[in-house]
Simulated assay, not measured.
Amino acid sequence: YFHRQGRRAHATTDNTLSKLPRLSQQVFQAALAGAPTKHAEEHAQLAALYARLYPQWRFEASQGYNLVFYGYGSKQRVVNRFAQTAFPDHYRLVVNGFMPSVSLAAVLGTLQTRLIGYRGVLGSVTEQVARILAWLSEAQRRLVLVVHTMDGARLRTPAVQVALARLAASPRVTLLATIDHIHAPLLWDARLAAPFRWLWHDCTTLTHYTTETSFEDRLMMQAADRTLQGMAHVIGSLPRPYQQAFFILVRAQAARMAAALTEGGDGDGDGDGDAGARGRGRKRKAASDDAVRYGLTHTEWMRLCTEQLVGNATSLRACLTELKDHDMVTVTSRPAGDLLHIPLDAEGLQEL
């Protein structure tokens, strides 16, 4: 039997995933939205069950405990609805830990600019946490901090967990966290878990992780759309001055690319056929060239930002570090100085 089976020719195919057409962001989202919903009645029953537990959860939070929700399925809708229903008069901040752009600096910066209205130098993490807690104490207000996917890649570092523990230890802060990984409890040893004062709740919803996975790299999407999607989410989480400084570079690089594309004319009108062909050839070459050549030097970018009153040298250096950490800006060393550029073509910059 094995001899005969071994002599058979095994039919193979060269149809691989890489040969499938890549979808644009719009087509992909439309197909995802059109997917049929399964077990809607059972999901509604689970949501109603958890809604009956809201008074119990609120009582536990009022006694100084912080709540962590675990279980299979997306818990975002349940926890958000609980925070809105149980704490309508409190300040609330929702942190989506599954986003690739989330960072401790963005969380603390948002609390200080939106909540306190602070516009000075932020300082170290310890100083920022102390400033937030001092303001809450003086204003006699409470903050509800909702952290989804607290075990996410951007939030699981010890420095982030220590800062969140300091916030959670305050009687003016209530922390509502969700975790998804089975080993998430290993983030906290006995010493770090003490200030969190966790109460654990099973919040199995069995719903799809649609929102949580919407930021992941998808093979079926075009590479340019994946890059633009990631940049758009990062931009939304940046402070306003950082956004302005970034778009100064976007506009300058886009203008240089547009000038290179139109250099020498488009070959139409009075020019002959050879001139038109040369013009179109220059267009194709400029469009395919690396974006590095159209970037700004570090000095030029700093000068433009200063002229438009975006920030000072210290804040711009911090901004550049943040942009580089998120792969928004690439720095290339040149004899004339470091060259800053955005890794997108002209069409991508226009879309951005």
Rank of each mutant, 00 (worst) to 15 (best):
A139Y: 03
W135L: 00
R154I: 03
T149F: 10
E138T: 08
Q140I: 03
V144W: 11
A130N: 07
S137I: 06
E138R: 10
A159I: 11
V144G: 05
E138N: 02
A165D: 09
R142W: 10
V129N: 05
H148M: 12
M150K: 05
D151H: 07
A168T: 01
L167E: 11
V146G: 05
L143D: 03
R166H: 12
R154G: 01
V146L: 14
L136E: 01
L164W: 04
D151A: 08
P158C: 09
R166D: 14
V162Q: 14
A153F: 08
M150R: 10
H148F: 11
P158V: 10
I132T: 07
L167G: 02
V162W: 07
Q161A: 03
V144P: 06
E138Q: 12
E138Y: 03
R131P: 02
V147Y: 08
V129W: 08
A139T: 13
L145F: 09
Q161P: 00
T157Y: 08
L143Y: 09
V146P: 05
V129L: 08
L133N: 04
A163G: 04
A168Q: 03
V147T: 11
L155S: 05
E138K: 07
R141M: 13
T149M: 11
M150C: 13
R131F: 06
V144M: 10
R166W: 11
E138V: 09
L136S: 03
L164M: 15
P158G: 05
A159F: 08
V144S: 08
Q140T: 09
T157A: 15
I132L: 07
R166P: 00
A163D: 02
L143G: 04
P158I: 07
M150F: 12
G152D: 06
L136W: 03
V147G: 06
V162A: 13
R156D: 12
A163P: 05
D151R: 04
D151V: 06
V162D: 13
T157G: 07
Q140H: 14
